[in-house]
Amino acid sequence: MKPISADLLQTYLGHKLPQWTQLAVENLFRLPLGASRETFRFDLSYVDEQGESQRTGMILRRDPPASNVESDRAHEFAAYQAIYGHGIPVPKMILLEPDASHFDGAISLAEDLRGYHNSEYQFQDPAWADRLPHIAQQMWSTMGRLAAVPVEALDMGFTRPATVENTAAQELASWVDVLDRHDVGAEPITRAAIRALERWQPTAQKLAMVHGDFRAGNFLYDDAGDLIAVLDWEMAHLGDPLEDLGWSLARVFCFAKDDRYCGLATREQAVAIWEEASGLIADPRALHWWELFNCIKGQAIWNSCAHVWQSGQNRDVIQAYAAWWLRNAQDRAILELMDKLS
């Protein structure tokens, strides 16, 4: 892919934002965020329509030619715009450029909320131990509040329709299709789980905007442990809010390698926080279905990582790393959920 340079970006923005003059792009820097998209930070200075000098931090995300997640800039941009102003803190979207010809891939620009943390590994630092209950409260209560947002109030035109009856089957079929198209080797454990999931699906209590990747590492928090913004909405869709809860209870995201999910809280604590904030019930059978489903989704993503690397479509180190690191752990998580681990 074409490197994104400050000159290239400055020229592009000069054409795109003619109302601003003396545009300058400085401190362009690629961030280590995620496997699915390239993320850059930069400073933009300019003189606005009133003749005032301005300087602002910006985040640029670019779609690669192939990714472990089949989403695009337009989808994530629309998801952020849909939830913005509805009680879930997110960065403000600034600009979408869906034409891939400018930067060898579509890009989006958003405000850069600086001075905060987003590391899932920082939670294992003993210095943060006393703040973990608060961060857990912040994380799962925000997820619960997202579940409670009336979906009718949101512009969900960016995602496929769903009903309370069909969302589970629809999501399962979609991720099985991703797995099928990114086959890098037989997955007997995953396939057994798929067959179990196909025998019964839960009906959602309600439809909600599902973030799709709500876990430690995908939100900003401050030194006090307050959640500042939820990031990475590229897999957002209309669906069952239990899907997000189930994803956050994934074993592969137990970053402390113990029974604290997301390295923050026990399963019981997480579910209790979510239920209180959402006003919904996490029915055990339905939640178990979504937890097992999320193993399929995870395995589809990790297999896609291996596939895009193996096929030469995306040779970022993280694609190979994620596949090596996660595929067997995901199988073990399936065994645990199917009561086959011991």
Binding site: P188, I189, A192, V252, N328
Partner: peptide
Amino acid sequence: AIWDELRASTERRRVTLANF
């Protein structure tokens, strides 16, 4: 017996660095 072998296969393939 199939499940026993699948479980054993994940032990053989286990990655120490993995979270689970």
